[in-house]
Design a protein around this nucleic acid. Structure first.
Lengths: 223, 223
DNA sequence: ACCCTTCCATACTCATGGGTATGGTGCGGG
DNA sequence: CCCGCACCATACCCATGAGTATGGAAGGGT
């Protein structure tokens, strides 16, 4: 790999370590990676690692922030050449599905992160910020497509929320139903998610809904 | 708690240990619970634990299976007194949201389990079976409500899939947005999930959604 | 040249926890 | 009565891995 142990500037050592950490975390999960392996992948040892980071926890957060920044950069790069609003939305969905749902390593990293978030407020805050940014990003895409008449108008925020929740659910499902995570399924998934923004049953449904009576039952709220 | 160390039949020791394991796992996550604590909660020590289970992994799976059985029993008990199909669906959603989305301990257990599934085929198979059963259960409820004219017909399977994925996504979101997991939100969430089965956009708006018109502001999406 | 700061490698400490070895206790049956 | 098995407690082993102590090499300033 590395032909010469050509001096690596110390200034770029922290991101290099964070990158190594991210790759190993994505491969095996937070709990199954130790600091020696991370340092080794970066071409150094634990002594160097502890000079740049104070703890494994700090490195964990650095790896997360690295992931957030790279994800944003990649999705913006994927959309940059596309002018049409609907195509931009479709491309964003395609990238999200390919990276977040179908990619095993990304899933491993994310689920490890969700586990960490259960007990770490900083990790929670970081993800919350990332998620909010992604949400606003999608709302903007949908609003643009609606304004251009490429999507039926209305309820952009709610539909984006539903879409993101469904995507997260799909991610989890892909973890235990490998057949749902085949690359061949990508287009189906994208169309399905896109269908959330087409509420008019334009999605290959038998159009037979005559009675749409609203339920008015009383609720019993046991448990 | 336990007034007397009154002999506990050895036959009920395995489920007792599995129950203790489940409670501790739900409290702190798989990785943060050791076998001594599990045994102590069951009123025994590790020697006894290893007589009934061969490894922590085996106990893990037993705790999962216990959870699956208890969940099925609880949801069926909640629906038993309800005759109306739509009320049954609503009650099932209420129970699912209360137990799977809003309950912190349940979330902790589930996310630990998803982490475990990434590397353990048996855990994956167990959850896949549970998930399939829940899916069929909901499809039955929806189909019954549709057949009774209480829901617009069509696409029961697809909508149930979308609903379950959204619920899983909500679970994850509740983990890092505590304000979305307040008990007060329960009814909003239930109505929102129920709205998936009412494709005509007749769904009540979730709170905090005053302006439903399409925003047309330009946004700069840096960082 | 010299020192001093930065950066990194080596070798250690030490807590943790899964798993095991072994010995004890209660109880049913011969 | 006592033997033996089922069941459980105690004490141990030991691999793992985070964190630390320490010393050495590189490079810049004076």
């Amino acid at each position: 790999m590395k032909l010469k142990p050509a001096r690596i500037s110390a200034a770029q050592m922290p991101p290099r370590l964070a990158q190594s950490a991210f790759e190993l975390f994505a491969e095996r999960g937070f709990a199954n990676v130790n600091l020696d392996q991370i340092a080794a992948r970066a071409g150094v040892t634990k002594g160097s690692l502890y000079w740049h980071y104070r703890s494994k926890h700090e490195l964990l957060l650095a790896a997360c922030n690295l992931y957030y920044r790279q994800w944003h950069a990649a999705v913006h790069a994927a959309l940059a050449p596309l002018p049409d609003p609907l195509e931009r939305l479709r491309a964003a969905l395609a990238f999200s599905v390919a990276s977040c749902v179908l990619d095993r390593q990304n899933r491993m990293f994310t689920i490890s992160l969700f586990m960490l978030m259960q007990e770490d407020a900083l990790a929670r805050a970081g993800w919350a910020q990332f998620y909010a940014a992604v949400r606003e990003f999608y709302i903007g895409l949908v609003a643009a497509a609606q304004a251009a008449g490429r999507l039926p108008p209305g309820a952009a925020r709610r539909r984006v929320d539903l879409m993101l929740e469904a995507m997260e659910g799909l991610k989890l499902r892909a973890g235990f139903e490998p057949q749902a995570a085949q690359p061949a399924e990508q287009q189906v998934i994208i169309d399905s998610l896109l269908g959330i923004f087409l509420p008019q049953a334009a999605q290959a449904l038998p159009a037979g809904m005559g009675k749409t009576q609203t339920p008015r039952s009383k609720r019993t709220n046991q448990r």
